[in-house]
Structure formats: structure tokens, C-alpha cells
Design a protein around this nucleic acid. Structure first.
Lengths: 327, 327
DNA sequence: TGCGGCCATGACAACGTTGTCAAAGCGAGC
DNA sequence: GCTCGCTTTGACAACGTTGTCATGGCCGCA
């Protein structure tokens, strides 16, 4: 900027005025400055500007478990869009299953003075998470609750979605329903399993030996199925707890002879309608979750004294062909 | 930091030394400083540090068309991981089909002094792109080439992938093959179409009336199919140019009576193996593309004088059930 | 005891920017 | 002609940090 000032024959301050379109600069002077800027390829250093102004950095940090999955990709896209609408940029980072990495990302974002944090890593334990959440940076938890209810959070209606799935199957006449969940280190996987148990209890259905977790591949699904079959009276329907478990079960059943159990999968799948049979799903509103989280975060930034809030985003059951009545 | 110094009864400089683990500080002094830091919740301002040191900001900027799609989500995840391995953070932004937005993102990233830019928005025209690429920030184009070959770029082997698809179909005995592509404002869509035309020419196959673009939904696929049918001798195979076109065709054909054409789809689909018939695909190496782009960018940052380079990442044909011999 | 040298520490400036305040220029009104 | 007030401009400090250099104390050795 000092170079631009010299080239334009003015002071730094005048250059600053031009750059920031402040009033009180003669058109001719502004012209000269603009020309100097163009010639020298000057570009304002936003970091220095933020430092001097003491204003926010106009950026948010998003910490995820893994950016590549369809659900988190959709959440991220919605978050970025919403942040952009607020004039903010988005820093993203994946924890990749390593709580230490998540903590380091949070630290790095905080040191860069992001205005707020969106924290979604599902594999990170509550203790770690709570211990490492910087007290001086507004934060919203995404898709997982805080251990002590001290933090704003946005969750899918996991219990409601599972209820809808079970109710639907019961309505169709199923009485022996199994549950297949993802890695039980995930809070959502446990939450949905518990929701399943509660829904079954509500309907007076058995669950002994019908609930299996850590079903991340077809082999695990096969093992779980074998356990159900060993249990005497047959399972006529299965609920899978997320897209990973759904895919594992679908792959296991694919091309096998014999009757398939009815199947409702938590999480929408891109091609659910093209499967044979088309998969009945409980879809999460990823975009809605992302938007709600950003909105919550900005409200928190605006008023840090607000009591902690929880937003629950509804799910939607889409009935397709995979969940007919039994036999 | 001045507060910490006061609390610890030292000078700012000593606090700085402790914060940066510089040698030459008595253990007791360091202790006192650490305690003051913990008490006051001090956190170094990385922005100020970067400013003073004149070092890089240890961040990269990634501009995409849309973060939500599976391909770009995978690319982004790989980019973030690789950037993190280099100790860099990642700023992401979607252009959402608006070239102006892409330009503003690039500008915003540059003003924040990112060390480099990864630019992938496919919808942005060459002119706009070239005109708005800041000359002072290292950049790598991702999944699209530069108009004048002046910029580093990482591309999928689009022509090779299409060749593999056509060769495969020809080998199986197909002689009338149609092509269904996505929005022809996408460079990749045009590139793959041209690759298809070249491959057919190489094999001496007809293409008149067999190539349709902008097939983003089942209706468009239906229209295209009607055009092929009107052409006398039947089309026995179709190549779709990306996951959007593949899905459009699959939805159109789904549940229809009669013989299906053989089908090879560019882009892997998550559930390709579960479709009926399982879809033969040409998979792009999204992670490889992301990694290559980051590596290229760091080499460019290290040596801005390097001549522009192009990296072509291979695709992989996975033959499944959807591409049998005709009749 | 005196001197050189090392070690721990601090004062100060500077990174690039902008808010504050003062000064200079100029026209209008008396 | 003089003052008043407005507009345009610039000097300076400060944001939070760190590199440079100086200072003062201590130890070891002659």
C-alpha cells in the first residue's frame, strides 16, 4: 500500500480510502490511485485489515468426521452456502476418526480467529470434545449432542425417523423386526438403535437377539442375519440405521435366492428408487441441518449470553417397494 | 499477550518465546508464563503472527461448482487431507453455477493470502476464468483445462475412459452406440462427447443422430431415446457421460418393458453393483485427482518459474452386467 | 580479583492496515 | 480583506506478533 501511495503520489491513508471506497477523495486522485493499484497489482491484505480494525475474520470453521460421505457432503454444501449468504468464508477439516486430529483442527481454527465453529465429528468421545471446545469461540454441534447440554446443537430427529420406520412396518403387519446399525462408536448409530428398542417396546415387539451393530460390510450383515435365523421364528423385516448399514445389507442380500425380509433404511440413497425392490427410506434433511446450524451459530455469535438451544430437524419416510406386508 | 506478560511479570517477548517454544527461557519463567496463559485463556493470533513473520498463511483455497455431488465431495476430501498433510488448512467455496460468484471467491481467497488456489468450477467460461485468475497467486485447475495452457491442471483421462467404454462395447459386438451427455456448458461433458465421436470414428461407427446432450432428467433421456428409435436400425448400446446422465437414463429405463440397450456409465455410482442389471462403469479417481492437484500446487508454490504442467489421472473400467453382447 | 563469554531477558521496531486528528486549500459571505 | 466552514489530504499511532539487538547477571578461568 505504501508502494501504491508512492506511485500515485499520495499518502497510504488516501490509498486506504480509495480501496475502501470511503468518501472525501477527489475523482482525479481516486483515478490516480486506481491506476497505481492496477499497475502494481496491489491487493489488500485482509488479515492486516482484520487485525487493525479488530473486526471479525468473517469466517467459520467446520470440523467433520469425513467430508466424502454423501450426508456430510450435503451438510457441508448447505453450510458453505449459508455462510456465504452471511458474507463468511468456510474453513473445513476432517477428523478422519482421530479425536486428536479433531482437537487440532478446532485449535487451528480458533487460532485463526474464526467467528464460530461447527463441530460434527461423530467418532470423537464426549470427554475429548467437551474438554477441547474452546470456551472463547462460539460453537454449534452438528448431528451429535453435547455431553452436558452446554452447547447449541442441531440434530436429526433420529428417534422420530426410527419410529416412523417401525410404525410403518408394524402397520404392514410385521411383528419380528431386526435392526442393523453402523459402528456403535458413532453416537447416531447408538441413538437410532436405542430409538429402535424404544419403538419395539412401545409396540410390544421382541428385540432379543434381533439387534446387531457394526454392520459396515456384507459379511457383518451375513453374520447378523445368521443370528436372527438361529432364533426360531423368522424375522420378516429389517431396519438399517444408516446408509452404510443399508448398503451392507443390500450387498449381502443381492442376488441371493429366497424371500427377502422387508427393509427400511435410515438415510436416503441416491439410487434408492432404482433398486430391486426400490428401497423404503427415512431421509435426513442434510441441507436443513446445515442451514439450521449456521443460523444457530450466527445467533450465538450475536448474543453469547443466549441459553443453549437444540434444534431437531425432521426426517421424512419415503415408502417404496422394499417394505411390503409379510409373506 | 501483553496481558499475559503483565500477569506473569515478564515482557511480551518472553511470552512469545514460551508460546513458540523458543529456547533460552528458564523453566520457572516458562512455568509462570504457562500459568498466566492458562488463567487468561490466551490464544495466539495466527493472523498477526503471519503478518509479522511475513510467512505464508498455511492455507489453500478450493473453488468448486458444487460441493454436494459425490465426485466433488470425494475430490474435496482428498484435497483437504493432502493439504493437512502439508500442514495447511482448506478454505472451500461453491460457485453454484454463477461465474461471478466463482470470481468473488477467488478474489476473497486471494485477499486472505491463501498460499494457493485450486479451481474447479466447471460452468465458468474460459474467458471469465482466465481474466479473473490473479496473476500473483499460484493456482491449479482441477477437472478442466486452461484456455491458453498457461496454468497447471489436473484432469481425468476423459478420452481414455470413453475409449475404454466404446472399445468394450465394440468388442462385445455393438455397432450402433448412442451417447447421452450432461449439460453441454460443462467442459467435461463436451470433452467426453468429443471423445465418444472420436472413438466411434476410429471404429468406423455411425454417430448421426446418436449423440444427445443436456440429459439431466429421465424426460430428457426419453426424448433422446425417441430420436434414436426414429433413426431406423436400433441402437444396441448407450454410453452416458457422467453420473447425472447415467441416472437420468436409468430412471427412464427403470421398470419399462422390453429389451434394454447395453449401458456403460462414466462415473462410478455408489450402488452400481446393486442395480439390475449391475451397471458397467468408467470410474474416475477422485481421490487421485485431489492429491495430484495439491501436489502440483505445492510444487508450483515452491517454484513459480516452473513451466505449466498437466497431470492426467487414469480412469478405470469396471465391467458389470449392464453391457452384454447385443440381442 | 578481573575479564571474557554465555545465558536469560527486555526494549523497540516493523509486518499492512485503518481510525483519529490536524492541517491545508478554497469558496462564500460579510 | 477577513473569517468561517467545508472538503481533501496526510501524519501518526495502534491492532498482536516476532526479529533484532542491547543489557545485565552469572559463571569459569586465569
Amino acid at each position: 500500500m505504501v508502494d501504491v501511495a508512492r506511485a500515485a503520489g499520495t499518502s497510504q491513508k488516501t490509498v486506504s480510502r480509495v480501496v475502501n471506497a470511503e468518501p472525501g477523495v477527489t475523482p482525479e486522485t481516486a483515478e490516480r490511485v486506481q491506476r497505481a493499484i492496477a499497475e502494481l497489482g496491489f491487493r489488500r491484505n485482509d488479515g492486516a485489515s482484520h487485525l487493525r480494525r479488530g473486526t471479525s475474520t468473517a469466517s467459520l470453521g467446520l470440523v467433520l468426521e469425513d467430508l466424502a460421505g454423501p450426508f456430510y457432503a450435503a451438510v457441508t454444501a448447505a453450510v458453505e452456502r449459508r455462510a456465504r449468504e452471511h458474507g463468511h468464508l468456510l474453513l473445513t477439516g476432517s477428523a478422519d476418526g482421530d479425536p486428536g486430529r479433531a482437537a487440532r483442527l478446532v485449535e487451528a481454527f480458533a487460532n485463526r480467529r474464526v467467528d464460530g465453529l461447527l463441530i460434527a465429528p461423530n467418532l470423537v468421545g464426549d470427554e475429548v470434545l467437551t474438554a477441547h471446545l474452546p470456551p472463547d469461540v462460539p460453537a454449534v454441534l452438528l448431528d451429535r449432542p453435547s455431553a452436558d447440554g452446554s452447547t447449541d446443537e442441531v440434530l436429526s430427529d433420529n428417534a422420530g425417523g426410527i419410529d416412523a420406520a417401525v410404525d410403518h412396518l408394524v402397520e404392514r403387519g410385521h411383528r419380528r423386526i431386526a435392526y442393523l446399525g453402523d459402528d456403535d462408536r458413532y453416537w447416531t448409530a447408538r441413538r437410532r438403535r436405542d430409538g429402535f428398542l424404544a419403538a419395539c417396546a412401545r409396540h410390544g415387539l421382541p428385540t432379543d437377539g434381533l439387534v446387531a451393530m457394526n454392520a459396515r460390510d456384507p459379511e457383518a450383515a451375513a453374520t447378523a442375519e445368521a443370528a436372527w435365523l438361529a432364533g426360531g421364528s423368522p424375522v420378516t423385516a429389517v431396519v438399517t440405521g444408516n446408509n452404510v448399514a443399508s448398503t451392507a445389507l443390500l450387498r449381502h442380500l443381492h442376488g441371493r435366492p429366497g424371500r427377502r425380509p422387508a427393509h427400511v433404511g435410515f438415510d436416503e440413497l441416491d439410487l434408492a428408487d432404482l433398486l430391486d425392490p426400490p428401497l423404503t427410506t427415512v431421509a435426513q434433511d442434510a441441507a436443513g441441518i446445515g442451514r439450521a446450524a449456521v443460523d444457530l451459530l450466527f445467533e450465538r455469535i450475536a448474543d453469547p449470553a443466549l441459553p443453549p438451544r437444540r434444534v431437531v430437524v425432521p426426517t421424512r419416510l419415503t415408502v417404496r417397494g422394499s417394505s411390503p406386508s409379510p409373506s
